[in-house]
Design a protein around this nucleic acid. Structure first.
Lengths: 212, 212
DNA sequence: CCTTGTGAATCGTTTCACAGCC
DNA sequence: GGCTGTGAAACGATTCACAAGG
């Protein structure tokens, strides 16, 4: 397959969210312009994004909300559920384990891990926190798809190494440290301090960041 | 000032984090190549990023770690502290309020707000949760710099409207809904479901996302 | 000799504009 | 007439490559 820009995938995710809301309001069709409005982009961008994957609309009519919704879900790989393990049951890990947005979107938390004995054995949203030392065995058994790292920065790389060695192919990193992962492993990072720093830059150098 | 790409600002934030660690190890100078290594980019990229703001190195020598660190902190606007209010004291809001990465980086949580009477009056890391109805008055009095929204999607836009009307110029949105804010207000969004969906796309369409 | 700073070249993404089709 | 799908043009970001300077 041709390379797809990350920005395109991110917008598809937004389109999907809007389509689901829009479908609930009873609308049957939608134009690229309306969809663009919702995601803060342009109609041409919407059509271009979709064109990488096929043609889903009818000229003069727009898109059938339901069909497009299904098509995007298929593009993103959301027809099947994905299983997620959360590593680190601190404040952020615990918050994520209980986050409804995950489960409703087809991401199932199948394990939460911590190294602190005080946390091991406690329950988070029905999942028992297990010992970090169980990781390799559990990954071999459960074959989870995605690992979410919610550990302190100095522990993150070692855990990323362990889970990728154990067979995980996708990592979402909430630790404030850039990670290295083997080729072939999908990696994303969410760094809250960096997000605040970008805002600070925006406030300091007014207008220096391109408008959104 | 000329427009600066968001990607440049994000990398500056990473460079700074690495410089701080590197300084602690006792190194006095660093080359663009070493800095690049740390942030997963190239030496040319590092030099180009810095060149938008001045010239900070010595040819043949590299950069003085301490000086560059100070220069980047100045570029990002981190010489002064920024005050932050968190709106929504649910799982994510509470986790953020207690997140050390914020405070150590010069971002001070000066208020936490919720609409749930059961949460109002409780304490999070020394800050008492206040009623959402106090927002306007408090913003007028404290003039916080940044609002972090940790509320459900259906409440997010109304609160964004309220805080921007009350004088907030920067918003960090953790709600899973795209927000509209008035011109001149800096806005960033962290959408955890979208991050997972990008990973799902990466797993589904192997190699379709450009390597990092 | 080593490494920066930077114009020029390249590469990728977004926007334009219009032909094609309902 | 309205809206999609898509090449072509414009724009923006990254990489190259080299002159300048310690």
């Amino acid at each position: 397959m041709k390379h797809i820009a990350e920005s395109t995938v991110r917008r598809l995710s937004l389109y999907l969210r809007f389509l689901e809301e829009y479908e609930a309001t009873g609308h049957a069709t939608i134009s690229s312009g309306e969809l663009a409005e919702s995601g803060g982009t342009t109609s041409a961008q919407v059509r271009k994004d979709l064109s990488f994957f096929g043609s889903f609309g009818k000229r003069g009519m727009g898109y059938t909300v339901r069909d497009l919704s299904i098509a995007i879900r298929e593009i993103l790989g959301l027809q099947r559920p994905w299983s997620v393990i959360i590593i680190g049951a601190g404040k952020i890990g615990a918050a994520l384990a209980q986050y409804r947005g995950f489960t409703t979107r087809g991401f199932r938390v199948v394990g939460v891990y911590d190294r602190d004995p005080a946390r091991i054995g406690t329950k988070l949203e029905g999942v028992t926190v297990r010992a970090e030392s169980d990781l390799e065995r559990d990954i071999a058994k459960l074959k989870p798809d995605i690992a979410v790292l919610c550990v302190p920065g100095d522990a993150a790389q070692a855990l990323a190494d362990r889970v990728t060695a154990a067979g995980i192919h996708a990592v979402l990193n909430f630790a404030p440290t850039p990670l290295k992962v083997p080729k072939g492993v999908a990696l994303r990072a969410v760094n809250m301090a960096t997000e605040l720093e970008i805002l600070a830059f925006g406030l300091t150098n007014d207008g220096a960041l391109p408008v959104r």
